[in-house]
């Protein structure tokens, strides 16, 4: 479905974002990309829809070769490849429904977009997307009035409105609290399986990647240093990706306390004490 052949990305300032990447992602796969900040995770994802133009090699999505220079071909490609962001990137001042309708832009004529008059089918698609993420009741609320988890669901609905073959997600749950992160990621996983969408997700949290992904790709300094099914991504392999030993935070289990009462008093005190030496981490 998505093929990287010797793909390089060199930024205008000379920094090498991706270094000779070779990958083959098959249809319907849920791939998690892990790695430290600056390892090239975002660059890899953004190369797929041309938000970051790749400078060498060949990148193919389906039958189409991604051509960062050809704007109209790129728009056609982007219509098939949806993207979700860490900061949701909804337009805060307009309604949830209008945010989802932004996903229909590629299928709407420019003049219709300009006067904000979307067709009945577009609205139907938008409502179906909202139903799929379970926030159809918020359709006419302002997007900025929603909670973080709901906003990310709006973003997922916007992407679903494109009827995409591929969903790229750049740190989709990094701005959410752990229980919400699991819910949103679970929704994404379910929808992806229902519709057979290929999904590439960047993640900071190893535990989330292990729980939801079919396949894990580890990156370091613009290179793929691990690529295999989730079962093979044992701690030793991940330590090689991160170049450090795993901490308790990396492999936190599902037992995340949901409310304050669940946290025992001593544990809280310990956490405060433990947090002091490196309070900024």
């Amino acid at each position: 479905m998505i093929t990287f052949e010797n793909v390089d990305v060199v930024y205008p300032n000379g920094f090498k974002g991706l270094d000779n990447i070779n990958l083959n992602i098959t249809k319907g796969e849920f791939v998690a990309i892990i790695g430290l900040s600056g390892a090239g995770k975002s660059t890899l994802i953004r190369a797929v829809n041309g938000l970051v133009p790749y400078t060498g090699g060949t990148l193919t999505v389906g039958e189409t070769v991604v051509d960062p220079r050809n704007k109209s071909k790129l728009r056609k490609l982007r219509a098939r490849v949806g993207m979700i962001f860490q900061q949701f990137n909804n337009v805060g001042r307009i309604s949830v429904l209008n945010n989802v309708l932004i996903g229909r832009s590629a299928f709407t004529s420019t003049w219709r977009s300009l006067i904000g008059w979307y067709g009945a089918e577009d609205k139907e698609v938008a409502f179906q997307s909202l139903e799929r993420v379970g926030i159809v009741d918020k359709a006419y609320n302002r997007a900025s009035a929603l909670s973080g988890g709901q906003q990310q669901r709006v973003a997922i609905a916007r992407v679903l409105a494109q009827d995409p073959e591929v969903i790229l997600a750049d740190e989709p749950v990094a701005s959410l609290d752990p229980p919400t992160a699991r819910k949103v990621l679970g929704d994404l996983r379910r929808i992806q399986q229902d519709l057979g969408i290929t999904c590439i997700v960047n993640m900071h949290h190893l535990d989330l990647a292990r729980d939801y992904a079919d396949r894990i790709i580890g990156m370091r300094a613009g290179k793929v240093v691990f690529d295999g099914p989730t079962g093979e991504a044992i701690d030793a392999v991940i330590e090689d990706v991160y170049q450090r030993s795993l901490t308790a935070e990396d492999i936190a289990t599902v037992n995340v306390p949901v409310s304050l009462e669940d946290i025992p008093a001593e544990a809280e005190a310990e956490a405060v004490a433990a947090g002091e030496p490196d309070g900024n981490s």
Partner: peptide, 27 residues
């Protein structure tokens, strides 16, 4: 951010200006 999101959906420039830029600068 929202501009990038609009780009990523395959919107053209005028659509992007209408759906993402205009609401942001309306106030």
């Amino acid at each position: 951010g929202p501009l990038e999101a609009a780009d990523a959906t395959g919107a053209n420039l005028l659509q992007r200006d209408r759906v993402a830029v205009l609401p942001a600068v309306m106030p």
